[in-house]
Write a protein that binds this DNA or RNA. Sequence first.
DNA 1: TCCCCTCTAGACCATTTGGTCTAGTCCTGT
DNA 2: ACAGGACTAGACCAAATGGTCTAGAGGGGA
Lengths: 189, 189
Amino acid sequence: MTEALTSTRDRLVLNAARLFQQRGYHGVGLAEILAESGAPKGSLYHHFPNGKADLALAAADWAGGEMQRIMADAFEHAASFDDGATTLCFKLAKLFDLSGHRDGCPVSSTLFEGAANDAFRDRAAEIFAGWIGTVTTHGVRFGLSPDAAEMMAERLFMGLEGAWVLARAQKTAEPLRRLPRLLGHMPGA
Amino acid sequence: MTEALTSTRDRLVLNAARLFQQRGYHGVGLAEILAESGAPKGSLYHHFPNGKADLALAAADWAGGEMQRIMADAFEHAASFDDGATTLCFKLAKLFDLSGHRDGCPVSSTLFEGAANDAFRDRAAEIFAGWIGTVTTHGVRFGLSPDAAEMMAERLFMGLEGAWVLARAQKTAEPLRRLPRLLGHMPGA
DNA sequence: TCCCCTCTAGACCATTTGGTCTAGTCCTGT
DNA sequence: ACAGGACTAGACCAAATGGTCTAGAGGGGA
């Protein structure tokens, strides 16, 4: 599919991230990732000596970074914390619509299946901490105390992950759109 | 493992529910479920003609019912909606501790991996609706308007699912214990 | 006793899984 | 020109996957 505009490594990471997000770590075989990336096995094991596990970590890192950028962007241009949170929810709802109402949280989809795989969960915790940290920073910027900002950030994170779960089950982004109101971030309407 | 105190069918459902909850639908092979249940393949395909998919639906149904009972129980003996919500979060935190900080939401772990499997997601939506409906009913019982009760129930659901995700990543039940305060269900402390 | 139906038992199968390995291409520095 | 590393290419492999099929155990009713 995706052709040589990007490096082989990047294509592998990108496609892996997308597929894992849709169907989970064990739900996608290397064969499919390789085919979509137009890469042979040799390339995979050259760039990722530990194979699928390495690739999943890289994919989660990449997707986690993208998400963090989306979060930062939503709050960057906001007039208040409530405004930023609302914008973020609506942005993610839009993305969920564009994905055909299929994709889950890229990190939990990718990293929550490896049996007793501590490395995966540790990495997930790191990525989540990055997200929550970003939102916390903006909370402080908007005048919240560090503690209050962290609480608000964590609450928003939990709400988003939960709304995402419900959205996948119901095949509609409405739960994500309802979230700002449920959390009191949308006084009006 | 689990021996003949229960019927073969029940043992299959129970073990499947447990294993899927830990490692997801694709993360567990039939061989393991069969071994843990002490049952041969023939029995599986006798009780579940469509094999793994049927078993997963039955497992999700069973686990969903258990969860609904836990929810009903938490609110049944509560003095207020806030009290019920707090009790529920603490109960689930306790269960998460007992699981060795491994298990995710039984329904999303089991039913969110089947490629474009609409049947799985529809079933998940039904089970989630049951949970939210149960909490909504209790909200009304505590004097909330039907609309307000449903909002509170949905908000609690999202919070729980999200807290569960964070709890898995951090390998601690603390996010679940923090949730009542984050949602304003715990005025004191 | 004999039949029938439910359920157990597990051998067997094609396919797919993640992973290894050898060969070869291509580009870069000297 | 040529040496050497980075990368591509895909044949190959053992193990595991979900699923099918035949055989038979066990028990209740006629």
